[in-house]
Simulated scan of single mutants.
Amino acid sequence: MKIGIIAANGKAGKLITAEAVSRGLDVTAIVRGENKTEASKVITKDIFDLTYDDLKDFDVIIDAFGTWSNETFPMHSTSLRHLADILSGKDNRLLVVGGAGSLYIDKEHKTRLMDTPDFPEAFMPLATAMGKALDELRKRDDVKWTYISPAADFQADGKRTGEYLLAGEEYTTNANNESLISYADYAIAMIDEAVNGNHIQERISVLAK
């Protein structure tokens, strides 16, 4: 299996790349600058400059792109739209590192985590931008996409336990009433989905056991 990982130099991207390499997959890091990952193959290109020719040989493209300033939040939508456009009608799968704010807290799927009073105000602009990007992606029936949301507490430096719980559209807690996952365990879930392809055109979520 050939996997291309966009923004492989980022915190999530690095661990996803390392997980894929550890499984013996054919991994290419897609980065803007110097490759800082364990991948031996590299495409050096900005996400907005990627064409289908760049991505056509990958069975799976993982989009780990993120941006964190008010000025650049719209790029969550524009970058994902660009990738969806160039993969439109193709067999290549697109897996997206998503956010938790858009997870639903009710079975009717009317209220999202970010709509609740206790949602941290500091995270609202990012959650809103990522939620908008997901809403737009849902309309794309021409792309084999999967959007993977982490738990509410997404821990960059958390331990790799080697285990996780798979959930769906709704905010879920584990037996300890916690919604958390480390980047390392999230990477395991991401590569499991890349290999298995069980949730095409679906949003799923993952959390620690």
Score class of each variant (00 low, 15 high):
194 A>S: 07
52 Y>T: 09
174 N>H: 08
53 D>H: 13
186 Y>S: 00
85 D>S: 12
23 R>Y: 10
183 Y>A: 02
41 K>A: 14
71 E>G: 06
122 A>N: 12
165 L>I: 14
114 M>N: 05
94 L>R: 01
50 L>W: 01
198 N>S: 12
92 N>T: 15
92 N>C: 04
201 Q>S: 07
129 A>L: 04
197 G>H: 08
71 E>T: 08
119 F>N: 02
52 Y>C: 06
44 T>R: 15
67 T>H: 07
39 A>I: 01
119 F>V: 09
130 M>K: 07
46 D>Y: 13
167 A>V: 04
17 T>D: 04
68 W>N: 12
18 A>G: 12
62 I>E: 03
19 E>D: 11
79 S>A: 13
24 G>V: 03
131 G>P: 00
142 D>Y: 02
104 Y>A: 03
106 D>S: 12
37 T>A: 08
111 T>Y: 05
106 D>L: 10
91 D>I: 05
113 L>Q: 06
107 K>Y: 01
91 D>A: 11
22 S>Y: 15
107 K>C: 04
51 T>W: 03
89 G>S: 08
16 I>V: 15
123 F>H: 12
121 E>V: 07
162 G>N: 06
200 I>E: 15
109 H>K: 14
177 N>T: 05
152 A>F: 03
59 D>R: 05
138 R>Q: 09
4 G>K: 04
173 T>A: 10
9 N>F: 06
40 S>F: 10
19 E>Q: 15
87 L>Y: 07
170 E>Q: 15
170 E>R: 14
158 G>T: 01
58 F>P: 14
173 T>H: 06
128 T>E: 11
19 E>W: 01
82 H>Y: 00
64 A>H: 03
127 A>P: 03
184 A>R: 05
39 A>N: 13
87 L>E: 00
22 S>N: 10
90 K>D: 10
145 W>F: 09
169 E>H: 14
116 T>F: 09
125 P>S: 04
179 S>H: 04
112 R>M: 14
180 L>I: 07
207 L>V: 00
139 K>G: 00
32 R>C: 13
90 K>Q: 13
113 L>C: 05
101 G>D: 04
174 N>Y: 09
104 Y>W: 12
170 E>F: 08
162 G>Q: 10
151 A>N: 02
133 A>S: 15
134 L>M: 14
204 I>R: 12
191 I>H: 08
11 K>R: 14
80 L>E: 08
21 V>H: 04
11 K>C: 06
193 E>S: 09
189 A>D: 06
166 L>M: 12
121 E>S: 14
29 A>S: 09
85 D>P: 06
55 L>S: 10
5 I>V: 09
135 D>G: 13
187 A>V: 01
163 E>Q: 13
81 R>I: 08
133 A>R: 00
36 K>N: 01
89 G>W: 12
63 D>F: 03
7 A>E: 04
115 D>H: 00
72 T>R: 03
20 A>T: 06
20 A>V: 05
103 L>C: 06
55 L>G: 05
192 D>F: 01
155 Q>C: 06
68 W>P: 01
157 D>R: 03
